[in-house]
Design a protein around this nucleic acid. Structure first.
Lengths: 204, 204, 204, 204
DNA sequence: TTATAAACGAGACGGTACGTCCTGTCTTTTA
DNA sequence: TAAAAGACAGGACGTACCGTCTCGTTTATAA
């Protein structure tokens, strides 16, 4: 969590009038509101600018496309990643997975991920942005919990941790995808429980 | 076409010029081609009509929206659901899951599912259509294999079959969603193997 | 005045929905109103469409540029060319020149001619349109009067008729151009009188 | 203003950074170039600033509108008014009229006059500026020649000098306006000749 | 046979949003 | 305090599609 920013950021001498930070905030806020109101497909730059009380070029100056604007908006909106350490890895895991799944299946960020993957090919770099700034940190946090559990002897030393995570996250995500309905905490916890149980079971 | 109508066709008394079947085919074909070329978001009814060599109203006469047209097109495109019975449930399972996953993560039908879920709220009925005509039959086929395996004593009698399927399908789907890349047969089979193994393991 | 339209106009078989004549009229009317309200430079296609109660593309479908729209509008607006024959050529000439000058220096058509000439180079073909459909017929009518006067012996046989017209029309036009104010009938008549007088004078 | 101004321009005590005279020149030069390249309508302050290598506000600081900038530019560009005195008024008149007409019908100043008159109503004061600084001095110079000719007995004492000038200048201007093409020296001289001839003829 | 009904292609309709350009103003840093 | 640089809100540009609506034409069935 320590900032990896190189220490010698020499403050580039920006010329001209600096960008108005309030405009930036207003645009992102308007984007999030409209995402909730009309969804991704129904969102237009025009409406964003109007709701933000901003000229349209001011939006385009910062974000070259709807997709990039939406990514920034949902990332800014995403609840910060915090991990509780209760002492019990299974509890921590259930807590965190449940939170992530609820976020993804009920907040705009999930929609953004779908839209991105759906348009894939053209937007690969954008998808990587989402992966890098959202998915990877969260997966890493889960991975750390699993590693601790292995170190503590609570999970077998040869467990495929990546596969375990794909199962824990994939199953509830798949439910959301095929039913269209958000997945609640209880269901997410039950899945984590089940995967944990089988992981701790000796192979037949 | 003049005579010997098969007995079970009640022959609705349509008046006027009948719809041109070739137009229908041309539209669906054009839709699929454009889906591959420009993706779902970039697809326009105008372009579909132009590529099909058809007037725009001819498209609207049959499909009231882009979404419905795309669903019909991808359903028609989807490979038929066939199940091999090799005698070994695990083999059949791996074969079928691999085929389904490869389809969903490489063909337009996956994109359509994402687009539908992403736009959810407005298109619930359409999503149900996709679920009913595509997802459910495939899930049912997998379920049948699992039930047979339980009946044959190869899987424990109290196994949660729905959860098992969510794990088998969800893990590879999740990989596709987060990497944006199709999942190949080998990876899909490995996941099925792993889930099967833990399902057959005695609880700790 | 007899129509020079070739008799065998075979009515080209127009396909598709025919253009709405009312839209056309509304656009031209809106253009004329706006020309009077905000002038040529201040006129925007957007405002024309709005005032005409018409979509913007409907304007562009018919007129590719503001210039062409304005030309059509002012031509349609121009008072029809009618010639009175009083028996006295000088009277007829004064009457007609005065009418033409008043039109050009007070109605939008004058502004259009200025704008066209001012932008010249790019709009040559448009300028020719204005010349052909507006200026030339009016000059021809004046020329006919002069010819009659020559034939009747009221003007010298060797009079340079083109120069005479340039003087009669040019002098009041120049006044308008350099003062910016419309030229009234009286001034126009006085100029015609003066030119006529000198034309009938024996060369020194 | 406080004290006795010395006769030789005492350098007013301007504070702060003085205006860059080169910026002013560059802007005017860029304006003239662009007028020739893209015409009055196609000229934008933005392009002027860019070509002059100057910030946009630097233009606005000096000229509040495109119109005023253009007027200054074309006035600065206009050839200085010089009168040759050959001894023969008709020769001098032809020489000067030809020069003025060629200027007006081939250089940007003519376009500026058209644009100004075309936009009239809004820009009356600007038009007066052009009249005062360009048209009036030139007309006065011509008037002086005519007066000398009258005084010398070469033209009748009761000749309407204003009308004579309107004829001499108006006829070629009208030709330019209706043909869109510059009027050459020869044509201008011929018109002066003709008007002069009729002016010297005894009324019928 | 001849209507009649519905489909066909073509294309115009009123609209919305696009992404760009320019306007004239307002900061900020540099000189 | 003016310079350049550049962001600001705003507005018009000309284009692409939307989904609907005539058109004139074509094609089957029903009268």
């Amino acid at each position: 969590m320590t900032s990896a920013r190189p220490p010698a950021a020499p403050a580039p001498p920006r010329r001209g009038r600096p960008r108005d930070e309030r405009a930036e905030q207003a645009i992102l806020a308007a984007t999030v509101e409209l995402l909730n109101d009309v969804g991704f497909a129904g969102l237009s730059i025009e409406a964003v600018a109007a709701r933000a009380g901003v000229g349209r070029p001011t939006v385009y100056r910062r974000w070259p496309s709807k997709m990039e604007l939406v990514i920034d908006a949902v990332l800014r909106l995403a609840p910060p990643l915090t991990v509780d350490h209760s002492g019990d890895p299974l509890t921590d895991l259930k807590e965190l997975v449940a939170r992530l799944i609820v976020d993804m299946t009920s907040a705009p960020i999930g929609r953004a991920i779908l839209a991105l993957t759906g348009d894939a090919g053209t937007h690969t770099d954008l998808a990587q942005r989402l992966t890098k700034d959202y998915l990877t940190p969260r997966r890493d946090a889960l991975l750390a919990i699993l590693r601790d559990a292995v170190a503590a002897g609570e999970l077998p030393r040869d467990l495929d941790l990546d596969l375990t995570l794909d199962l824990m996250l994939g199953a509830p995500t798949y439910r959301w995808l095929t039913t269209g309905r958000p997945v609640d905490q209880k269901a997410a916890r039950a899945i984590v429980d089940a995967v944990w149980r089988t992981a701790t079971a000796p192979p037949a």
